[in-house]
Computed example of a mutant assay.
Amino acid sequence: MAKVEKFGKFVGKYFTVAIVFWVIFNYFLPKTSTWIIPNISYLLGVILFGMGLTLRFKDFERIAKKPFPVIAGTVAHYLIMPTIAWVLCLIFQLKGATAAGVILVGSCPSGTSSSVMAYLAGGDVALDVSIETFSTLLAPVAIPSLLLLFAGKYVDIPAFSLFLSTVKIVLVPILLGVLVHSLFKNKIEWITKLLPLVSQLAILLIIGAVISANHAELLTAQTFLVIPVVILHNLSGYGLGYLFSKLIQLKTPQRKAITFEVGMQDSSLGATLALKYFVPAAAIPSTVFSIWHNISGSVLAVNWRNHDSKKSIKENNEVEKIVVE
């Protein structure tokens, strides 16, 4: 078990590198992941079941006791990210499935990587996890509604089917995970230690399937246009998320948590729904987002951590100077 945990930490440390390598590998050998395409929803279910295993019914009490930051962060996420996606589609004149894919990833709940980034940045991890949980539970209603509002002119939106699928893919695994954790408690502690590795491998498999499904369309002008759109989408989410949390006068650790929760998306869910309900090209924005937000999130988290360390050293030096004087 110790070796598996160590390997999981190694994969987590170099996860972005692993994603880039896996994308390149599947581009040149697309048949490697063809078998995964029909099974993507099961892989996502494994990820979300694992998320549920880390939660208890008591965790939902935290949301009830201090609802304002959780509700504010969730509202900010679902207000900012879909709107930015829609505006970017207008600015870059995206059409059809590509535009729908950008709006779809913008309409997804917060990304599972955000809690890791909040931890690395010295943010409020409990708040981060609460927003992530709350936004994910709202996904069955939020995703179809936001797609109808912003993407209806680009593609036909099967809203009710999306709702049912999101309930089945998202809510059922999470609630099953919570139930299993509540029933077996410490007996499944060894499983929770494996979850980061299992989730990372599942994400890699989903990305491989998207690359395989879109192999013929990856090196097109429309696809290359997605890259700057995704970068601007993610960075705007960080900026507006931080500004929003500052305007409502939250403390610095809470601002960091909301910044990551707003700017980072559940791109695996976006890719899964895109492949199920739209053409494969609609899954490309989610795949690019998955690569990019891990890079940008890591850079932001490290910079925040380094800034806090320098600030702490400066404050300590000033205190020592006052004491000496």
Rank of each mutant, 00 (worst) to 15 (best):
S286P: 11
S41Q: 05
T252E: 12
T192E: 09
E189K: 14
P196H: 12
V170M: 05
I248Q: 05
K95D: 13
L104W: 11
F68H: 08
F289I: 00
T74R: 00
G96K: 08
G270N: 03
L235P: 14
M117G: 09
Q222S: 15
H215I: 01
H307V: 10
N303W: 14
V20D: 06
D266Y: 12
V20Q: 01
V129C: 06
T54K: 12
T272M: 12
W304R: 01
Q249C: 10
F57S: 15
A159G: 13
G8P: 05
V178K: 04
G263R: 01
T136D: 03
R56C: 03
K314F: 13
K153F: 09
Y78N: 05
D124C: 01
V155A: 00
A257L: 00
V116W: 08
W190D: 07
G122S: 10
V125T: 02
Y78C: 01
P38M: 08
V70N: 02
L175W: 02
P67A: 01
M117W: 14
S199R: 08
S212A: 13
I295L: 15
L232I: 08
E320K: 12
L232Y: 07
W190E: 09
V323A: 13
S309M: 13
S199W: 04
T32S: 13
L29Y: 15
S267E: 02
V210K: 00
W22G: 09
L43A: 01
L275M: 14
E261H: 04
E132S: 14
A213M: 11
V46H: 03
V20S: 09
L43M: 01
S236Y: 04
F244Y: 13
L195A: 07
P38K: 02
M264R: 09
L137V: 14
S114M: 08
K251D: 12
S41F: 05
G241H: 00
C108Y: 03
D266W: 08
I36G: 00
V279S: 15
A118G: 04
Q222Y: 12
K3L: 15
F49S: 01
A282S: 12
G239H: 07
V279L: 15
Y242N: 02
S165T: 04
L171P: 03
G270P: 11
K13D: 02
P69C: 10
A64I: 15
L164P: 09
V129H: 01
T220L: 10
V210W: 03
L204R: 03
V319C: 08
S33N: 10
F160N: 11
